[in-house]
């Protein structure tokens, strides 16, 4: 018997359930293979992402964690030669299905990248970017969205007096929280974070982690991280990715509640990785 995040006993769930359960899970990835040209980057990926939980993807560099993340809001579409087989369900609907609205998808599932990438615009214009794209013109409404998003991203107090200043002048940690605010402004349901703290110092990292704990009350979060302590501290579920040999596709070795993965992993490779013996 193992316990999930609420401390209730649940059956071990080493891999995703065979049939997607739409009520509990926001995102269900089924038998996903990803190709870059002839190269198979991912094979047989199955993950369920529960509503209002933080799901972490861990594993060695280059094992395809980010690629999975990017296929959840179809950013891989932009990569020439990238091709996906299998399904990714968002609330029961296959996002790779014919005629699926990619713009709507990206609005519902926002992405925060490894390096903070604010636009070379003012703080205000960065946050207002998404709402403006979706046609919000009313000044008062924009003001409100910008303030709310910055408050939620725990940045408001630091920038409220200088919204017209360039976002480029902010520190790395502030820029990353600005990028989170920018995503929050389009009112997504899910947030994907691709190693959001990789370029940040420990204090800025701590702030982002606190923020994510707060945000999961409202949003469903998936985070890729190289930092295992971060995954252990932060996440409710963890998927461990690996490539067996150079040139092989990345696979999920084990997926389950974070405390199970970090205390009693089923797979020996998971244990070796989390205890730091390889990778």
């Amino acid at each position: 018997m193992q316990t999930d995040v609420e401390g209730k006993s649940v059956a071990a769930r080493p891999l995703a359930t065979p049939e997607p359960q739409h009520g509990r899970y926001m995102i269900s990835i089924r038998d996903l293979d990803l190709f870059y040209g002839d190269f198979k980057a991912l094979e047989d990926i199955n993950v369920d992402v529960e509503h209002n939980r933080i799901t972490a993807f861990i594993g060695p560099s280059g094992c395809g964690k980010s690629s999975v993340l990017r296929s959840i809001n179809r950013l891989n579409d932009l990569v020439k030669g990238a091709r996906v087989e299998g399904q990714v369900f968002l609330d029961g609907e296959d996002i790779y299905g014919h005629g699926y609205d990619v713009v709507e998808l990206r609005k519902r599932v926002g992405m925060v990248f490894q390096r903070p990438n604010p636009f070379p615009k003012s703080i205000y214009d960065n946050v207002a970017y998404g709402p403006r794209i979706f046609g919000v013109r009313d000044r008062a409404e924009l003001d409100q969205v910008v303030e709310e998003s910055l408050v939620r991203a725990a940045l408001w107090d630091e920038v409220k007096g200088k919204l017209k200043q360039s976002a480029i002048a902010l520190s790395g940690g502030q820029q990353q929280r600005l990028c989170i605010a920018r995503v929050l402004a389009v009112e997504p349901e899910g947030i994907l974070l691709d190693e959001p703290c990789a370029a940040l110092d420990p204090i800025a990292t701590q702030r982002i982690e606190d923020l994510l704990q707060e945000l999961k009350k409202t949003y469903t979060i998936v985070i890729v991280t190289h930092n295992m302590q971060q995954a252990a501290r932060l996440s409710d579920y963890t998927a461990f990715f690996m490539i067996e040999n150079q040139g092989d596709p990345g696979r999920i070795v084990e997926f389950g509640p974070t405390n199970t993965i970090f205390t009693t992993p089923e797979d020996e490779r998971t244990e070796r990785y989390i205890t730091g013996r390889f990778g």
Binding site: L78, M111, F113, N117, Y129, G130, I133, F134
Partner: peptide, 14 residues
């Protein structure tokens, strides 16, 4: 930078 394009497209912009 490509990261600007990604950020914009990732927010749902065409």
């Amino acid at each position: 930078p490509a990261s600007y394009r990604e950020a914009s497209l990732g927010l749902g912009a065409s």
